[in-house]
Simulated scan of single mutants.
Amino acid sequence: MDREVAMGFSGLGAGLRVVVTGGGRGFGRALAVSLGREGAEVFVSARRFAAAEETAQAVRRVGGRAHAFECDLADPVSVREFAEALGEAADAVDVLVNNGAPYLDAGGFLEATDEQVTEVIAAGAAGTVLVTKAVLPLLLRSARPDIVTMVSGCGEYGNHRSDAHEAFYAAKSAQAGFAEVLSKRLRPSGVRVISLYPPDFEDADPLGPGWDEARGTGEALGARSVVDCVRFAIGQPRDCFIKSFYFEQA
């Protein structure tokens, strides 16, 4: 039996309205294209509109519906404008994927500039909170609202294995704490808050010829497997709430 049919993934995205922040490249782009291929209507944001539009075009090429938006998560005004534009494009959304958060590896704690530290924490921590706050009214109009946050292993207590800068660790720890309390407070409203804590993982092109087999080599985690985790979690019946995904790191 086909793996995706066996796991209940076939046609998962059909009819879903999914918002993906940080969707201009990397995992956000891969997830947007994957869900769009299955029939989801995808709303992609990126700091640069051109990057968001490039992903939107990729979604359209695989048969999905897509909309592109500019959103700088470090700028509260940009976040508000994104939410307003999103509200004009859709009267409700089903899934918000908090994926946008700039990575920082400046070669050492003291080597990062104050501006880099501020931007990373502002976008990853405050930006995630502000986007969720702004999009929540649209989610509450859905019969199946999910909030998915790509926290990363850097937000897992005691994790020290990534080469990421300490400011990135700070932003991801803030995301983890936010998701934890949000899950408790939104659950009575029927909103599932799902967090993923993957280690640094291999990326893959969702439009490449090897995407169907694009999983990690050896023991290294691959982007396709992380995409499958998101699809599995949001595809579960409403009485099944997979709160968190934790991964062993090789």
Rank of each mutant, 00 (worst) to 15 (best):
F247V: 10
E156Q: 07
A122C: 02
V151R: 00
L196S: 01
D163A: 13
V181K: 06
A125T: 00
S10D: 09
F82M: 01
C154P: 01
N98C: 01
E111N: 12
L207G: 08
D200Q: 08
E156S: 03
S195C: 00
V42G: 03
P237V: 11
K172R: 10
A6L: 15
W211Q: 07
D203N: 12
R47H: 01
P188H: 09
R215S: 09
L35N: 05
E84G: 03
R47E: 00
A14G: 00
R185P: 00
A92P: 07
G64C: 05
G23V: 11
T113H: 03
V148C: 06
R231W: 10
G22V: 06
D72P: 05
S152L: 11
E156C: 00
S142W: 14
V93A: 05
S78K: 02
G222W: 10
A52E: 04
A204R: 12
V120H: 02
G124P: 05
A167T: 05
G63F: 14
I242R: 04
A89R: 15
V230Y: 14
R3Q: 09
A58R: 11
W211R: 04
F82Y: 12
L35H: 07
D94G: 07
L96K: 08
Y103E: 08
K133L: 00
V151C: 03
V33K: 08
Q249P: 10
S142D: 06
N99V: 06
A214Y: 10
A233H: 07
G153V: 14
A68N: 07
H67N: 06
A68F: 05
G218W: 14
Y103Q: 07
D203V: 12
M150L: 07
D203G: 14
S162L: 10
L96Y: 03
R29E: 10
V226L: 11
G158N: 13
Q116Y: 07
T55D: 08
V77N: 01
A250G: 13
V62M: 09
A106Y: 08
A51Q: 12
G24T: 09
G107W: 15
K133D: 00
G24C: 09
T21S: 05
A40I: 12
V20L: 08
S45D: 03
L110Q: 08
L110I: 10
R48F: 09
L140V: 06
T55N: 07
W211T: 03
G177V: 06
L207V: 05
D205Q: 13
H160G: 06
A164P: 01
V148M: 02
G64W: 14
L196F: 08
A123H: 04
V193Q: 03
G8D: 12
A143H: 14
G158E: 11
A40H: 11
R60Q: 12
G87S: 14
V42M: 15
V18P: 09
P209Y: 15
D228V: 09
V79P: 00
P237D: 03
G124N: 02
H160F: 15
A40E: 03
G210H: 13
Y197V: 04
F49N: 00
G63A: 12
L110D: 10
A89Y: 11
A143M: 13
S162N: 04
A56E: 02
